[in-house]
Design a protein around this nucleic acid. Structure first.
Lengths: 216, 216, 216, 216
DNA sequence: AATGAATGAGAATTCATTCAT
DNA sequence: AATGAATGAATTCTCATTCAT
């Protein structure tokens, strides 16, 4: 009756212990159902992971693409993309983590498909960085490394952000936008009035902070 | 006869498939010995992981501490620390990855100890950032976030750096130092002549690029 | 609505893969109904098998007994019994096979009952052989072995007979009658005119040849 | 240390309950070892069955081929082949039964291979029957049906023969030879002195009568 | 130092069956 | 009459680890 419940339990456990170290019985217990019942919701443990990863990556691509459509100005695009990335990651930290870490747990077919989505998402960053450099709005030693550093930085948010932490999400987003702009020598004070932040999506697979405590 | 051989096989497999998904028989096969023989080199699978992580983290702390001793100048310290971090990570990408990812695979005791080492290493970054800010050499919105972004960025090098890639290690290090300084608004042109790069250590657990190919 | 449909699906699958290797879901799928619905037609998987076997064995006993009533002449009785046995087996090859092979799949109670029916059927052959020998119409080294060989031979028809094969059922019956008589040194040319062949019953559990193809 | 022990346990249980209804734990218990240890002796449950069937069928082919080499005389060949078949079946009744019944439990590859061996064995009978008919030594209505009846008859021995039964193996063999000859109208009194009986092989997979009792 | 044999615990998945709808 | 959801028990097979040799 509720695939979401199973997905949330899965993300909670996969994020805490890893896919391979999480048993199907553990999953059932965390979701409050018999382990056999999981197979009514999904074909296999791997299928469950793949479905979680797919919706996560698709949502990231959607949000990122929408960010790029806000403006044609590279600096605004960068700004919006970083804000989107950080916003999404901070809103769905566990699901993001699972989507990042557990690619290797997939079989060849699923891995190929998910890697394709991941590449599609990364290409959004590549696009923006390249255009900004071409137009002369950004300055970096190496485009590829800048893009990788940029993404990695934002992805790291999943490791420490807590909704009830010291800073609000908006503050975190602004800080990261500033750091990103400085890193690329982009002057975003020119566009200070622009509203580049969109409300991030909350995935159905993201456990609510207190839904269940992480078992030792 | 050679604990290093076992460690290298372990790092190769742990990095590729994860600790939990790697079997002791697989390990033996990759190391060219019987799986039972592994127990002559280590007490258990977890011990093997812990020993790898310990030497990795200790080497990182050593290198980072040495970097800080190069100068009392925050900008030079930052520069040296980032160069050290990137240099170490690029030289030992697989071991670094294992040390980063597999903390969760450890039992409580080992995890506590390793987390302590990790914290110790992170505190080096915190120290430099705080001093730079206090002295007025750096400018950032939030010290903690800057530190986290800084480290995450450098750690990401493990995901893509290849010794035979497009850029030399020294180029990569300079690029990251530049990005870091820009991110913190640190002016390192003042110290351009300073030699802040030390030859990174190659861990005994780091597999040589072609020692064994990663099994599918 | 149709127990026969379920029985035919069951016989098809039991004959192909065996009772133990056939799942209740598979059964439902082959019968075109939900697996839970099967329990409206039968109490359990074993009950389903037992009901199939019971009707099969009872029909065999009926046909065999009728054959013996055709005449008091041992040779004619033999002839009619073999024709009946071969006719029944060739008309209901899959059901016969299931009734023969799957005795062991039954629980103690059902097995006891079914073994009783099987024994009753076998006793018809024993009776005829013994009378023929006593009267001097048959000659064999050992009555028991002759009976067993006789039955096994006929039962084997289920393994290869196809309604659309090279020979008609009547031809097959005549051939087997001839072989049986020769084996027992019975001279049935004396009774050539006698019509000892009855139309065999088609069981409700016997799948029609093209009803459903046997899944791999 | 003893694959034979495992094979004998397997044959005992497979013959009694069928392959599909026999669990790997049951097998271990019957063999006196832990169920996991079975995987030191064989790759899988199916491999275990396949290895049993392969040695059985190969031994049958060997014995049958040897029988045909005793003489070029069709009647003697028939006689020797039937004696060999019955001898082998009576000596290895459980293994024979398993080899006959459990073909369907094999996966496509193993089944194809085993069916090939079975066909090879059956072709020995076809060869003899055809030659005898061509030469005019045998008389039957239909060669194919005669061959099938012949084999089925002998195979049935596995269902009832007991080493400690009423008749010795040699007596059983002679009786079957007689029945076979009568069925084919072959006059073997011409060759009465010929010694056509060879000592049958005892397979390593055949349980000794009292090794273990068949569990309910 | 090294290994083949062995095992208890646990893995993912399927099973026949029940039941509320 | 029919079914989708649910489950405890069982399935085959793999696991990390031990030990006699």
């Amino acid at each position: 009756m509720d695939l979401g419940k199973v997905q949330r339990a899965a993300v909670l456990l996969f994020a805490a212990h890893g896919f391979a170290a999480t048993g199907i019985r553990e999953l059932g217990a965390a979701a409050g159902i018999n382990s056999a019942t999981i197979y009514h919701y999904t074909g296999s443990k791997e299928d469950l992971l793949a479905s979680i990863m797919r919706s996560c990556l698709e949502a990231m691509i959607d949000a990122g693409s929408a960010a790029l459509r806000i403006s044609a100005e590279p600096t605004i695009q960068l700004t919006a993309l970083v804000a989107s990335h950080v916003g999404f990651t901070a809103t769905n930290p566990l699901t993001s983590r699972v989507a990042e870490y557990e690619m290797r747990a997939l079989g060849p077919e699923n891995r190929y498909a998910m890697q394709g989505l991941r590449d599609e998402y990364e290409s959004l960053f590549a696009l923006v960085v390249e255009r900004g450099l071409r137009v002369g709005d950004f300055t970096v030693d190496d485009a590829t490394m800048a893009r990788l550093a940029l993404m990695e930085m934002g992805t790291g948010v999943a490791h420490w952000y807590r909704a009830d932490g010291r800073l609000t999400l908006t503050e975190v987003q602004h800080n990261f936008v500033n750091m990103a702009c400085k890193m690329l020598s982009a002057d975003h004070t020119l566009f200070d009035g622009t509203d580049y932040i969109r409300q991030p999506v909350l995935l159905g697979s993201e456990p609510t902070p207190n839904s269940t405590s992480i078992p030792a």
